[in-house]
Structures are given as C-alpha cells and as structure tokens.
Design a protein around this nucleic acid. Structure first.
Lengths: 215, 215
DNA sequence: CATATATTCTATCGATTAATGGATTAATGA
DNA sequence: TCATTAATCCATTAATCGATAGAATATATG
C-alpha cells in the first residue's frame, strides 16, 4: 500500500481547506456578520469597513469551501451561512481563543469597562428576569438583524436610534444590552451612553450565535 | 472613537491565530495524533512520516498559540493538548468538512470499502452489545494510546501484532475495529485482514476524540 | 568532562496569500 | 438600446508561510 500516504495527505488537505477559511481576520469578521443573517456584498463591505472588491474576494473563499450559499434577489446577491454548524464552529473558535490566548483576554478587558457578571449571567435566570419585567433585554443591532433572530424577550432599538428613543426605556429597571457578539462594540457603546444618561445598564457579551450553541 | 477599528482588528487578528493553526494539513495530522495522548517529538515525526525538524517547527506554532503544553521527562519532551476544547475543535472541523466538502466525502468513500452502518452505529447499542459479548470492540492503535484512553469494553491488539494474535479473536462474533479516527487507516487495514481470514469484521470510523464529544 | 541524543533556532528558497486597481459580466431601469 | 448598479474576474505587488539544511542548545550517560 504505497498510496496510503497519498490518500492520507489528500484527506488532511481537504480538512485544512476549512481551517484556512478561519485563518484570516477579515473572513472571521465576515462570518460573524453572516451569523446575524443573510446580507448583500455591499452591506457586508460597509459593516466590515472594507472595499467591496476585497469583500467579494473573501466571500469567494467562503463559497469554494461551501461554507456559504448565495441567492440573487433583484440587483443584489445575498450571502448566508450554508449550515448552522458554521456558526457553531465560529463560536467554538472564539471561545477557545478567549480561553487560551492571554493577549485576547487583555484586549477584551479594554472593551469591557465593567465586569460582565453584575447581571444574571446564566441564560435561564436572565430569561426569567426578562419575563417578569425585572430587566429589559435590549438588542442594539440594525433592525433587519433583530428581525432575523433575537434573544427571547429582547426589545429592538438600533444603536443609531438609541439617542432619540431613550424615553422608551425605564430608569427604574436594569437594562441588559447585547449586539452581535463579544467582538462587536455596539452594545458597549450603548451601555456607555445609557450609563451617562443615568440608566443602570449592563453589557451582555454573548450574541445570538453564542446563545444558539447548545452546551 | 477613532481607534475602535484598531481594537476590532486586533481582536480578529488574535482569533485568526487559532484558525491559522488549523489551516495546515500537517498540523491537523499532529493534532489528531495528540488527541491520542502525550507523545514525544520523535514519535510524532515517525507517526506523521515527516522530519523531526519540521515536526518541531509545527509544534512550535501550536505552542505559541497555547494549544499544546510540553513537559520534559528524561531525555524527551512530551507534547500534549493544552485543553480538551482543542480536541473538540478538531472534531468540529472535520465533521463540518465531511458535511460540506464533496471532495472529502469522495475521498472517504475510497477508504470505506464497505458501508459503516452494518454494525450498531449509535454509541449506546454498541456498548450494550459489547457488554453482552455479542460483538468484540477492537482497538488496533499502539498499546500506549490504548492505555491513555480507549472505548468502553474495547480490547487492545495493535495492528502490528494482529497477524500473530488472530487466535485471540472469536470467529462466531462480529468484530468492530477502530483506530485514531476517520482519517487513520489502521482500522481499515485490520478489517481487510480479518475479513480475508474469515472473520466478520466491521470498521467503526470514530476514534476516541469523536467519542468524547458530548453531543 | 566528553560524547551521544533529543530538540530547537536561524537562514534561505519557493509557493501561497492578502490586498489593490483596472477591466468585465450580469441584471435593472430609463 | 444604453446607462447604471452590483458584483466578479484578472493581473500585480508585498507579505507570509511551509519546507529544508546547517548550526546551536540542553539534557543524559559513560
């Protein structure tokens, strides 16, 4: 069996194709955005603050690895994750990275101005508190993303509208804001603004992708 | 906040470090070997059929990403996975790859001479059958790996010794052989040999890493 | 202390990849 | 049909990575 080595090499090469997709910072950011729902190339480019050409090139990599699917709607082409398992893998990678990489832990520390645990941190008690109305769960992502999927009992006020719509929020209850996930800065911004205006606001670092992983 | 972009870039760069580790075929093979237990550089080099120098270089990558830990025992340095989550990620990646990549499915089809489902394929019924003695679960990996961890009720006969120790196996019962995982060819070899000698043998594609993932 | 063994470090070459700009395709709408 | 919009393809450049060979280190053993 002299070709056993060859077969083996080929197998690992195929596996590495998946790893390669997750080896580029830009692609990871695109994957996180796609975890929020289907989006056009231009939307993705804007939200990731990179050129449309570069976005297209990275999406091509995702496409040849069969991790995303495309659908044309009128002028636009919408990209979406091909499988929930892709989002799961994304969550797995960033969880492992946060556990193992001290550099990442320190960078995250800079973002989280305050500890995360002042608020019911496990899922059941957060949902329970939200159901009872003890806390307000606030989704600060764009409303399309809220419509695609959101946490139970969450109310949607996109970050851009938050300043004008502050009066919709009660000052006598805690507000728990979340956004796309641990690397999205929208919820942190929202919490800073709310605290500045006298609200008692907290930052839930998980997004819907993290929430969806059955642990 | 003009440095928000910078912070974000840095975060994704850190995350990509983990992805990069999983983007090389050789490193994936080393990770799979390390899923079987702690091993020296030389052992890893031999089992992956690559030079010691190259092995050391790849292990260095794993080390700077904090995914492995080292321990000196006498002359040798033993490498082991730093966290069970690393093995879980390996299983996640190859599961996703098998689901999404047609090329990989076809390559695996060449290895699996016969379908995998002729034998109790879910865990509970396999364990139950093994407990009752209806089937023999056979671990054909080197005995050190068996000693580190093995499936419940599995009996150890390393592939190299199998030819001489055939008489230890019963001809009136099914034999279910497994090895390191779906990309290891040892169990396939063993099954081919056993069938050739008149045994009723089957190939369980999962290894202990796959088995350990709580689904 | 000298030698053998196990492993790592450094330098180098070729191959791959990320990013950018220019040209091209595909669908829409006047 | 022609212009517009959305996205991709293609060619180029700089940076990075995988692999190999030679030198260096660190530990064990005589």
């Amino acid at each position: 069996m002299k070709d056993a080595r060859q077969i083996k090499d080929m197998l690992y090469e195929q596996l590495a194709r998946i790893g390669k997709v997750f080896s580029s910072p830009r692609r990871l950011e695109l994957i996180e955005l796609l975890c929020q729902g289907a989006k056009t190339v231009e939307t993705l480019a804007n939200e990731a603050s990179i050129s449309v050409k570069l976005t297209s090139a990275h999406l091509r990599e995702l496409r040849v690895a069969r991790l995303v699917e495309t659908e044309r709607r009128g002028k636009n082409i919408y990209y979406r994750l091909a499988d929930k398992a892709v989002a799961d893998l994304w969550v797995n990678i960033h969880t492992l990275a946060e556990e193992r990489l001290v550099e990442l832990q320190m960078a995250l520390h800079k973002i989280a101005t305050l500890p995360n645990d002042l608020v019911p941190s496990d899922r059941e008690s957060l949902i329970k508190a939200a159901r009872k109305g003890e806390v307000v769960v606030l989704d600060v992502r764009p409303s399309e993303e809220y419509l695609t999927a959101h946490l139970p009992f969450a109310r949607s006020i996109p970050l851009e509208e938050l300043r004008q719509r502050l009066d919709e929020l009660p000052k006598d209850r805690s507000i728990v804001a979340y956004c796309r996930g641990p690397y999205c800065l929208m919820a942190a911004d929202a919490v800073a603004m709310l605290k500045d205006k006298g609200y008692s606001a907290y930052h839930l670092r998980d997004g819907i992708a993290e929430w969806a992983v059955t642990k």
